Simulated assay, not measured.
Amino acid sequence: MTVMRVPGGAALGAASWVVARRGIRRTLRTPQIIVMGLVQSVAFLFIFRYVFGGAIGTGGIGRAGMSYVDYMIPGLLTVSGLFAGMSAAVAVADDLISGYLDRLKSLPMPRLAVIAGQVLADAVRVTLILAVSAALAFAVGFRVHAGWGSALAGFGLCVLFGFAFVWMFVALGLLTANPQAAQGVGFLALPLSFVSSAYVPVDTMPGWLRGFAENQPVTVMMDTVRALTQGEAAEALLGHGSGHYVTRALAWTAGIIAVSAAVAVTRLRRT
C-alpha cells in the first residue's frame, strides 16, 4: 500500500498528526470549548430525565418493557456527539480567515492533511464529551440490557457518527469562511436532533413528518444504539433487530464522511 506524500514533503499521516496536535493543544488552552459542550449535554440530560421524563415515558415505550431513561439516553448520546462537533465549523472558518490554512497549504504536505488534522483533533474532543456524558447517564439511572460488548459497540458508533458530523461541520466552515456565519449554519443541526426519535418515538408524530423523522440519519443512529444497548425491549419497540440498524447506520455514516470530505477538499483547493 502506498503512502500519500508530497515530493520532498511529509506523508499524509505524519502531517495530519502535526496539525491535529496543534488543534488538541488549542482545545486544552481553551477549556471553555469542552466545558460548554459538557454543559449542553448535561442540561439536556437533566431536563429530559427529571423535568419531562415523567410525562413522556408512557405509551409504547412502557408497553415494550423499556423505561424512559433507557429509551432517551441513546438518543441523547447521539445528539451530544452531533452538537459537540458544531464548534469545528467555527474553528476551521477562523483558521481560514486568519491565514493559518494558507500557511499550511504553502508547506510541502498533502492538502488533505490540512483538514484531516483538524478533524482528528475535534474527534478527540467529541470522544471526551461522549465519555463524560455516558458516565453521567449511568449516574441518573441508565442501564444496559443487551450485554457490554454490544453496548461498547453502540458507544463506538456514537463516536464514529460524531466523527462524520465533524467532517460535515468542517466542510460548512470552509464554505462559509466566516466564524459567525459558521456558528449560525451549525445550528441547522437542531432540526435533525428534535425531528427524530431522540426523546419520543416517531410514531407519535404526524404522518407528513414521520417519514422524514424515521429515515433521517440521526434517528437511524439513535435506534441502532438503542438496539445494541436494550436488546429485546428495543427490538419489540422498533420492529427490527440490531443488525438491520447497524447496517443502515454505517451506510449513513460512510455517506456523510464521503460527501463532506469531498466538499471540504474541493473548497480548500479553491481558497
Score class of each variant (00 low, 15 high):
residue 140 V to W: 07
residue 177 A to F: 14
residue 102 D to P: 09
residue 202 V to W: 09
residue 133 S to Q: 05
residue 168 M to A: 08
residue 228 L to C: 13
residue 234 A to L: 05
residue 52 F to D: 01
residue 1 M to K: 13
residue 103 R to Q: 10
residue 155 F to T: 06
residue 128 L to F: 13
residue 192 L to E: 01
residue 125 R to S: 10
residue 189 A to I: 11
residue 83 F to E: 02
residue 186 G to A: 15
residue 239 G to H: 14
residue 43 A to R: 12
residue 141 G to H: 10
residue 19 V to W: 02
residue 240 H to N: 14
residue 245 Y to R: 01
residue 25 R to A: 10
residue 216 Q to L: 04
residue 63 R to K: 05
residue 135 A to C: 03
residue 94 D to Q: 11
residue 78 T to K: 03
residue 171 A to I: 10
residue 155 F to L: 13
residue 141 G to P: 15
residue 5 R to A: 14
residue 34 I to V: 15
residue 51 V to T: 10
residue 149 G to T: 15
residue 39 V to E: 14
residue 56 I to M: 15
residue 70 D to G: 12
residue 67 S to L: 01
residue 213 A to G: 00
residue 199 Y to Q: 08
residue 99 G to Y: 01
residue 102 D to A: 10
residue 116 A to W: 05
residue 67 S to N: 07
residue 35 V to F: 14
residue 154 G to I: 09
residue 220 V to K: 02
residue 80 S to I: 08
residue 13 G to M: 14
residue 251 A to Q: 00
residue 247 T to F: 12
residue 124 V to G: 00
residue 26 R to F: 09
residue 206 P to L: 08
residue 73 I to N: 05
residue 22 R to E: 12
residue 68 Y to T: 09
residue 102 D to C: 03
residue 234 A to Q: 05
residue 23 G to E: 09
residue 51 V to Y: 05
residue 176 T to Y: 08
residue 86 M to I: 06
residue 14 A to F: 04
residue 85 G to I: 05
residue 187 F to T: 13
residue 211 G to Y: 15
residue 245 Y to S: 00
residue 117 G to F: 02
residue 69 V to L: 07
residue 229 T to G: 06
residue 19 V to T: 09
residue 21 R to G: 13
residue 73 I to M: 07
residue 260 S to F: 05
residue 92 V to T: 04
residue 173 G to R: 04
residue 49 R to L: 10
residue 102 D to M: 00
residue 116 A to E: 00
residue 48 F to Q: 00
residue 10 A to E: 13
residue 218 V to M: 08
residue 46 F to N: 03
residue 122 D to Y: 02
residue 193 S to T: 09
residue 256 I to H: 02
residue 187 F to G: 06
residue 96 L to A: 15
residue 248 R to V: 03
residue 188 L to H: 09
residue 52 F to S: 04
residue 113 A to M: 01
residue 170 V to E: 00
residue 20 A to E: 06
residue 25 R to H: 12
residue 48 F to L: 04
residue 250 L to Q: 04
residue 222 M to D: 07
residue 251 A to S: 10
residue 24 I to V: 12
residue 168 M to L: 15
residue 150 S to K: 11
residue 76 L to M: 10
residue 204 T to L: 15
residue 34 I to T: 13
residue 3 V to T: 13
residue 109 M to V: 14
residue 270 R to N: 11
residue 201 P to K: 12
residue 48 F to D: 08
residue 197 S to P: 01
residue 52 F to N: 03
residue 38 L to M: 12
residue 135 A to K: 03
residue 143 R to N: 07
residue 6 V to Y: 09
residue 78 T to C: 13
residue 71 Y to I: 15
residue 192 L to P: 00
residue 225 V to A: 11
residue 66 M to K: 02
residue 242 S to R: 12
residue 114 V to N: 04
residue 177 A to C: 07
residue 252 W to R: 01
